[in-house]
Simulated assay, not measured.
Amino acid sequence: MKNKRWILWILVTIALVVLALFIRARVQFSWAVFGQQLKQADWRRFAIAVALIYGGYVLRSVRWSIFLKPVKRVSPFSILGSQVIGFTGVALFGRLADLVRPYLVARRVNLTVGSQVAVYTVERMFDLGAMALIFSLTLLFAPDRNALPHHELMVKVAKVSFIVTIGLAIFAVFVRVSGGVLAAFTEKTIGALSPGIGKSVADKIRAFRDGLDTIDSVTDFLLAAGVSLAMWALIVLAYLETLWAFTNSPELYHMTLARCMVLMAASMGGSIFQLPVVGWFTTILATSATMHAWLGVAPEPALGAGAMLLIVSFLSIVPVGLIWSRFEHVSLKRVTEESEEAGDREIPAEIVAAATAAHPSVSAPPPSL
């Protein structure tokens, strides 16, 4: 497995170098102008953006405590350190540290790692649903949606995203109520053609249902949904504050919510490669290229904004996480290895696959949260 990871790192690094050389040959870029853009930016807005991102981490802890209610009453602030340290691990070690947060929470509240990975699975669902809903509604109803590049395509994407989000929500309710019946039906029908595939699909449905068991009532569902929407609203505001800080770039200083949604989508696409350090540059390149090619931002402020968006939404937690880990006597490298071993040893592969399949890294998700 480790050899495969090194091969992947090398391939992605080579691709990044080739892409950087291609961009350098096609785009006129001045490092002096780049430095001037950063120097003349409004750094107070960067500080506000970081504060908003930190607020998102607090809301993550609140939501996790809601998911824990069926089995244990836990104060959100008691697991806040696990959230902060876990996201620090993801920022430094990439997807290798995906299970650090559920592993640390499990140790903190004396529950099994598998139960917390189930919570993590549901958390991913709420993240994707909240972000998709905000993205869709913004592009469908924002006053400036018709001014977006390729606005007709954007509106179509928003409509599809909205329909898919609603459809997945209905499917989740059905699985929560009748997941066992659906799994048995799937295993029987698909298994008639391919027993292996039928069993695999049925196991994934059961794992999905087990994760949804963390939602105890309609009230808890609505509360978790509200917290999710509030958290992603903070992330969107953090993005806007970061972009508005570049006062010498008219396109960034007057950035609208609809255009910001396009950038966030590009940032999520760039964060697919959650490799240590390398993933930072894929995110910066994806976001900067979107600003330059789609929104008409000059290369220098586009690169500066791309770098600051990564720092604010994804890397700003690292100093706090490193300090917190020292106070809690947690070695990030060791806990990353231990969480991975625990996942291989204690958790069914279907649950791990469901949990890590979707990882919005903007503060994330990303961030990222």
Rank of each mutant, 00 (worst) to 15 (best):
A225T: 14
G191Q: 06
P319V: 02
K333P: 04
E300T: 06
D220M: 07
V90R: 04
E251G: 01
L295I: 07
R45Q: 12
L8T: 12
N110H: 13
E328P: 05
S339H: 03
P301T: 09
W244M: 03
A289T: 15
A192R: 14
E187G: 14
T290S: 14
R259N: 12
F29H: 12
E152L: 10
S361G: 11
L212M: 06
E123D: 15
N146S: 12
K159Y: 12
K199S: 10
L322M: 14
A307S: 05
A358D: 08
V312C: 12
V227G: 09
L369W: 08
T88N: 11
P143G: 07
F185P: 03
G296T: 07
I53N: 09
P102I: 00
A354I: 03
A225I: 03
L96V: 01
A158E: 09
R124Y: 09
D210Y: 05
P367A: 08
K156S: 14
S313Y: 10
L168N: 07
F185M: 10
R259E: 13
G179W: 00
A354F: 04
D144K: 13
I14L: 14
N110P: 05
V117L: 06
L140T: 02
R60H: 07
R259D: 05
I14G: 00
L295K: 01
H329L: 09
E337L: 10
A202Y: 08
L263G: 07
G211C: 04
D216N: 07
V84P: 09
V62R: 07
L212N: 07
G94H: 11
E300D: 03
A172M: 12
L212R: 05
M255S: 07
A364R: 14
T290H: 06
M231P: 00
V84K: 05
G343T: 00
D344T: 02
G196P: 03
L104W: 01
A20F: 13
I79S: 00
K39T: 09
L310I: 08
R107S: 04
T138Q: 05
L140E: 07
L310K: 12
G35F: 13
L315Q: 11
S267E: 04
A91F: 01
E341K: 15
I197S: 10
T283V: 13
R124I: 02
L237T: 13
S78A: 11
V157F: 14
V84W: 11
A293H: 11
V62Y: 14
M255K: 08
G81N: 12
G86M: 00
A358T: 05
I166F: 13
